[in-house]
Computed example of a mutant assay.
Amino acid sequence: MEKLSIVVPCYNEEATIPIFYRTVEKIRNQINAEVEYCFIDDGSKDKTLSILRDLNKKSDAVHYISFSRNFGKEAALYAGLKMAKGDYVVTMDVDLQDPPALLPKMWNILHESDYDCVATRRITRRGDPPIRSFCARLFYKIINRLSDTEIVDGARDYRMMTRQMVNAVIQDGEYNRFSKGIFSWVGFHTKWLAYENVERSAGETKWSFWKLFKYSIEGILAYTTVPLYLSSVMGILMCGVSFIALVFIVIRALLYGDPAAGWPSLVCIITLLGGLILLALGIMGLYIAKIYLETKKRQIFIVREER
């Protein structure tokens, strides 16, 4: 019988893990496969690890990895994919915002068609703050304009993949990971399933607005160098503007003399140029920082306990 591995990152999810496990178990018999659970405890500070230990003792299908500290969801996803032994692997959140009821449908699509992956996307953001929904839509528009790697609007990490695709993702061992981009970059035939937003079953989200903003910057830097080109273009444009202004000043001085007035506009121009220079340096600095982290070749995660 084929095996399906369910990869589930967890960070301070003591309230949601039992609910998630019971929910998936109810629909487990609808999937004609041996199912294994691969929970990743991302350095939780609550009773997440204790609950995973209990589930592991009760069921041979439950396995887990516990990190030495919090390494982030991207590291947890990577660890889960490396841990999974199934012929098919599905990644999903433990808070039930990724509906387990879609699992049988995803399984059937992969077996009845030529797709390598079945991915999900939210078509509504009901329950999210308006500002967060607006910024999320703006992020997808920006990254798809700047990058050759398409990121589908509303795409979730909830997807079921063949072993071939999983192996391709694992081989991409970069330190600065952006899974949505990696899943798209490796290619393969993907079927998209749309669903309406589902709120958490319990607990609180770990994604603040600032964390989401930083994550969006990571995605843009990981899959496009257009910001570097834009900084160069801004530099060229400002050189052109400066040259035109210089010609204007020389002609004005020849025709009307050289009055001392005009220092406020001069201060504004200097401030503008200084801001553009700092912006360009900041963009280059972000890319250099990514290069620095990659060259250090640090471990993406460190395992403290594994069962």
Results as ranks from 00 to 15, higher is better:
I109G: 09
Q164K: 15
H63C: 02
N144P: 09
T224P: 01
A194P: 06
F183M: 12
V90L: 08
I277S: 08
N32W: 03
L293D: 13
V166I: 12
S208L: 08
L221G: 00
E25R: 13
Q299C: 11
N144C: 07
F213R: 07
R69L: 00
D54I: 01
D41R: 09
G262E: 10
A280S: 15
L279E: 08
N108C: 06
E13G: 01
C117N: 08
C135R: 06
G262Q: 07
R163P: 04
G235V: 00
L281W: 06
A79R: 08
S242H: 05
K297G: 00
T224D: 02
L103M: 10
V118H: 05
L49V: 14
T149R: 02
S184F: 08
I109C: 10
I19F: 11
I300H: 03
R122T: 07
F213G: 08
Y292G: 03
F301K: 11
L293P: 00
K211P: 00
L138Q: 11
V233N: 01
P129C: 11
S232Y: 13
K47H: 12
S216Y: 11
P104I: 04
I220P: 03
I6G: 01
S59Y: 12
N167W: 02
Y215A: 14
L102S: 03
P104L: 04
G203N: 13
D87I: 07
L272H: 05
T271R: 06
F301W: 03
E13N: 09
M238C: 02
I217H: 03
C239Y: 05
K47L: 13
S113H: 12
E306T: 02
E218M: 14
L228F: 09
I131A: 14
